[in-house]
Nucleic acid binder design. Structure first.
Length: 955
RNA sequence: GCGGAUGUGGCGUAAUUGGUAGCCGCGUCAGACUUAGGAUCUGAUGCCGAGAGGCGUGGGGGUUCGAGUCCCUUCAUCCGCACCA
């Protein structure tokens, strides 16, 4: 009988809970450390081994920091609003709160079994009224704020009103939907409703008609990051474009700060790049083109102002409002047809046909402001209304899309940039455009001879001087659509009066989610909340029936953990000033353009309000990789293919007599890949890639008479060998590793260690079902260090030997070095080495084993706690201090140098560690081995790297 | 197309950051204890070679006394964005 992890783990989990070991409070005598996991959405499927990977890593880091004397905040909670519970509610009528509660309890049970050190007193749930009160509160603040581009921060909308009253829009530079100009008098003359409409143009949370991603299947709109390839990310339902009145958050106001802030935080380069792309800053110019024979002009945006002389046509997005004004009578019918066609195409169709060129001529012409040339204006859906001005000047010679368009419709192509080192050529003969921003300008009047970079600057200066354009920065980032036509989400704290939205008084918060009789839209197509009885204020004004999206509740949850029970303010100054921000955030990289950018935006807004003290929410972030499944396959013989394959050959087995429906052939039987179909098989029936055929027969009714063509192992025994592939872990692929099963079989500590041992945290890797045995052996070996052959604890109080100390000190150094690099797999290796060494040394000394138990406690907390108590301590190992690094972990006084002759290692030389480089060199050259190797050659050079290597160059 | 990574034994990986490549583990092989082993323990295990020795970090080139690590080039795989003017 050796280590009984079941008993031990249960005992200490109870002890930790009963003694509130992991409770944390503000303690100004200690430095703080805030380490956070992305909180999970509690789905019905429970956890698989991939989920706890990041949690285990953060738990180890949190425990380590605590041993190092930090006051560690390490909380956990639930992102409780989500579509699955609501879909389930629609189907079954079960209130999503009930489903969610059930799932949360299951999650909690699973998490507890792994032995995390969360302070559960700080748990938050986004669907708790006490929590979403502050989500609603933040929304009201957004509604009541505008963004001043001069002070570069959010300011109260009341200040804007005062400004309008005294000076109108004079001198105003604020983020807005459409630039407006009016005087103070004009403002005062407007009705209340008109004024509210104007303010809506500036609010950070505003209501507007927008093109949205409408998902008919889900009955709601989705944000851009919730749509991929024209399908909803959750559920994979088709998404169409549609204009609807929606709440939006003016995140675009913060584009520049979101971009700049990336420089100040310690995130992976790849995720920063994802965010930079998403923000998509590009600097260019906006230019005005007059329209021939009309008294209007069109504004275009370009990053290539230098190529203006090469603009041979213009293109408008199909949604561009000027189209109907400029279109000629002859072209009107064709244009209208095209616009209608373009508008009705789904996102998916559009994406699938990106390469297909389509468009129509409007019959109108723009005027090149420099040459006066008339250039035709076209409408085409490759120009997007949502970016820039929805209109472009097309320069086919230097833009591949314009080039394709010009080729298709036979429009002129004019070269204006000469490739570096080449003479200009006839652009109409080109097979592709020259898009690079290099080379020298040609055919461009005053720009000729300038480089592209110079030409851009010169052109912008010129158009600014002429008053027909100006330098301008554009962002790809769009305002975030914030309305969802669903039930299971935060209600907006807004009501409607005279058709305009107003915020509820803050004292009315939280506005609780009402009960309704069914969770789907009303017959008239209104959102589910319209079903609620008396969904109106006390005065009888109608309340908003949309709810907030999933990212609302997750955008500032990390702040609430600092002060989770505070019912009077979002977060107290005291709590925020102490905990400041998240020091280490661990979670998946898939939230790069969603949660992680919305959080940064909310954080910056709350910072502007003065509610919090840090401008960025997450100082350092680690993105853990995904754990993939390793799917096993069996191969079912396809009789037809089999007969075809062996048509002219002798058949190795007779399919007719063996039966034709469930005949499986082992992986390495010759020709198998040509006549069999792979079928996924549950990994629980496969050991070391060998199928347990009896279990397989009992797996499903339709397989109970299966027959097998075996291959032979080395001893000639018949075995059925399965194939395998790395895939996403999922129930339908029969490759799910359930943490509960693993905990039951090997214990939580083994699971924790093994998840870390699997490889670098940030890398995606398949779950290797066999490797866990090795870690399990290590755990038991560790246990045996502390126990004798009768499984009794026994320790010696003798002083440790140099060798034993060296082993321990090496481990301390390794653990301290690697944990800061979040390289836990190498630390686990170091533990294994140390335990192997100490086992060989038969070490049972207290002096070694006590610090060792403390050191292992972040990784295997249950085992460590048991050992600690068995050594006679009353307090928890969690509360101990990490052993100090002993500088002289190299205990010997000698150092062994590898000596190389001409870069080739020849022998080892042992020298005192105290020698200077010159002395080392001298000793090396005089050594007997060196003399032998150098022989008659002359020594040209000696390279000495102290404590590393000696290299002698001879010739 | 643009951007970000990553390439090391049969497999997962390591390498003191430019200094003896392959630590630790899996798998495999051999041995011990066993009626037995999907148990436990011990040893071996990069490749070629009987051996001495040779070859080895995707390929090619370079810098260096010395390169998995730095530079150039090329190939392959994965991920993200994508008609963004």
């Amino acid at each position: 009988m050796d280590y009984n992890f079941n008993e031990v783990e249960k005992k200490w989990q109870e002890y930790w809970r009963n003694n509130n070991i992991y409770k944390v409070d503000i303690d100004k005598n200690k430095p703080k450390f805030y380490i956070l996991d992305m909180f999970p959405y509690p789905s019905g499927a429970g956890l698989h081994v991939g989920h706890p990977l990041g949690y285990i890593a953060s738990d180890i880091y949190a425990r380590y920091k605590r041993l190092k004397g930090f006051n560690v905040l390490h909380p956990m909670g639930y992102d409780a609003y989500g579509l699955p519970a609501e879909q389930y509610a629609i189907q079954t009528g079960t209130h999503p709160a009930i489903t969610t509660e059930k799932n949360i309890n299951r999650y909690r049970e699973q998490l507890d079994k792994i032995g995390f050190c969360y302070d559960w007193d700080r748990e938050v749930r986004t669907s708790d009224p006490g929590y979403y009160k502050w989500t609603q509160w933040t929304f009201i603040q957004l509604f009541n704020s505008y963004y001043c581009n001069q002070t570069k921060k959010a300011q109260p909308i009341a200040e804007l009103v005062k400004r309008f009253e005294s000076q109108g829009t004079e001198g105003l530079d604020a983020a807005c939907s459409t630039p407006l100009t009016f005087t103070a008098e004009e403002w005062k003359a407007k009705s209340e409703k008109e004024q509210q409409e104007i303010l809506m143009n500036y609010r950070l949370a505003y209501l507007a008609d927008t093109m949205v991603n409408w998902c008919p299947e889900l009955g709601t709109v989705l944000a851009n990051d919730e749509v991929a390839d024209g399908l909803s990310v959750r559920g994979g339902h088709p998404v169409v474009r549609k204009t609807m009145k929606q709440w939006l958050l003016r995140i675009t106001a913060y584009a520049e700060r979101l971009l700049e802030g990336l420089e100040t935080i310690d995130w992976s380069e790849s995720i920063k790049e994802v965010q930079r792309n998403w923000i998509g800053k590009s600097m260019g110019a906006s230019l005005l083109f007059d329209i021939a024979d009309k008294d209007i002009n069109i504004e275009v945006f370009t990053t290539r102002a230098d190529t203006l002389f090469g603009a041979s046509f213009m293109v408008l997005a199909p949604e561009h409002e000027i189209i109907s004004t400029i279109v000629s009578d002859e072209q009107r019918a064709a244009v209208e047809e095209y616009v209608t066609w373009a508008k009705n195409r789904s996102e998916r169709e559009r994406m699938a046909e990106v390469k297909k060129v389509s468009g129509v001529f409007t019959g109108a012409y723009g005027i090149n402001p420099f040459t006066g040339a008339r250039i035709p204006i076209w409408v085409a859906d490759y120009v997007l209304m949502g970016y820039g001005t929805g209109a472009i000047m097309a320069v086919p010679a230097h833009d591949s899309r314009d080039f394709a368009f010009a080729r298709h419709f036979n429009l002129p192509i004019t070269q204006v940039v000469a490739k570096p080192g080449e003479e200009p050529s006839d652009a109409s003969q080109w097979t592709e455009s020259f898009d690079a921003k290099e080379g020298v300008m040609v055919n461009s009047e005053f720009l000729n001879g300038l480089t592209v970079k110079e030409a851009i600057a010169t052109m912008i200066a010129k158009v600014e001087e002429m008053g027909i354009g100006k330098g301008k920065t554009n962002y790809r980032l769009r305002d975030a659509i914030f309305s969802r036509q669903r039930y299971w989400g935060e209600p907006f704290p807004m009501y409607y009066k005279d058709g305009m939205p107003y915020a509820l008084d803050e004292s009315k918060l939280p506005l609780e989610l009402p009960s309704i009789d069914a969770y789907k839209p009303t017959e008239t197509g209104e959102p589910p909340l319209a079903r609620a009885k008396n969904w109106a204020t006390e005065e009888g004004y109608k309340l908003e029936t949309n709810t907030m999206p999933g990212f609302a509740g997750s955008s500032a949850y990390y702040l609430r953990y600092m002060d989770p029970q505070n019912n009077n303010e979002f977060i107290s100054k005291e709590a925020n000033n102490y905990w400041e921000q998240v020091d280490l955030y661990i979670g998946g990289a898939e939230h790069g353009t969603g949660h992680l950018i919305y959080s940064r935006f909310w954080n910056k807004f709350l910072f502007d309000l003065g509610v919090i003290c840090k401008d960025e929410p997450f100082k350092k972030m680690i993105n853990q990789g995904m754990i993939q499944g390793r799917t096993s396959f069996v191969y079912r013989v396809n009789v037809q293919k089999y007969k075809e394959y062996f048509a002219n050959k002798e058949m190795p087995f007779d399919v007719e007599t063996l039966g034709t429906s469930n005949l499986f052939v082992s992986k390495n039987i010759e020709g198998r890949e040509f006549y069999s179909d792979p079928i996924r098989v549950d990994i629980s029936m496969v050991h070391n890639d060998i199928l347990d055929t009896e279990e397989f027969n009992q797996w499903r009714d339709d397989l109970k008479d299966s027959k097998f063509i075996f291959e032979q192992d080395k001893e000639g025994n018949p075995i059925y060998v399965c194939g395998w592939e790395v895939e996403k872990m999922s129930k339908s692929k029969f490759n799910v590793q359930n943490p509960d099963d693993l905990v039951a079989k090997y214990g939580a500590d083994t699971l924790r260690l093994y998840e870390m041992f699997l490889g670098p945290l940030e890398q995606s890797k398949p779950w290797d079902t066999q490797g866990i045995e090795g870690v399990y052996r290590f755990i038991r070996k560790f246990w045996r260090l502390y126990t004798d052959e009768n499984n009794e604890f026994s320790f010696s109080d003798e002083p440790a030997t140099k060798e034993e100390l060296k082993s321990l000190h090496k481990l301390i150094k390794k653990e301290e070095d690697d944990i800061e690099r979040i390289s836990f797999n190498t630390v686990v290796s170091a533990f294994m080495i140390c335990v192997n060494e100490l086992t060989d040394l038969k070490c049972n000394k207290r002096e070694i084993l006590e610090p060792l138990a403390i050191m292992v406690s972040p990784y295997a907390p249950h085992l460590a706690e048991e050992l600690w108590h068995q050594m006679g301590h009353d307090d928890s190992v969690v509360m101990q201090k990490f052993p100090e690094f002993v500088e002289s972990y190299v205990v010997e006084n000698n150092f062994t140098y590898p000596v190389s002759i001409n870069g080739k290692k020849r022998f080892d030389l042992e020298l005192p560690i105290t020698l200077s480089p010159a002395e080392i060199e001298k000793a090396a050259l005089e050594s007997a081995e060196a003399v032998k190797w150098i022989a008659d050659k002359s020594v040209k050079k000696v390279i000495v790297v102290p404590k590393k290597i000696i290299n002698i160059v001879v010739g």
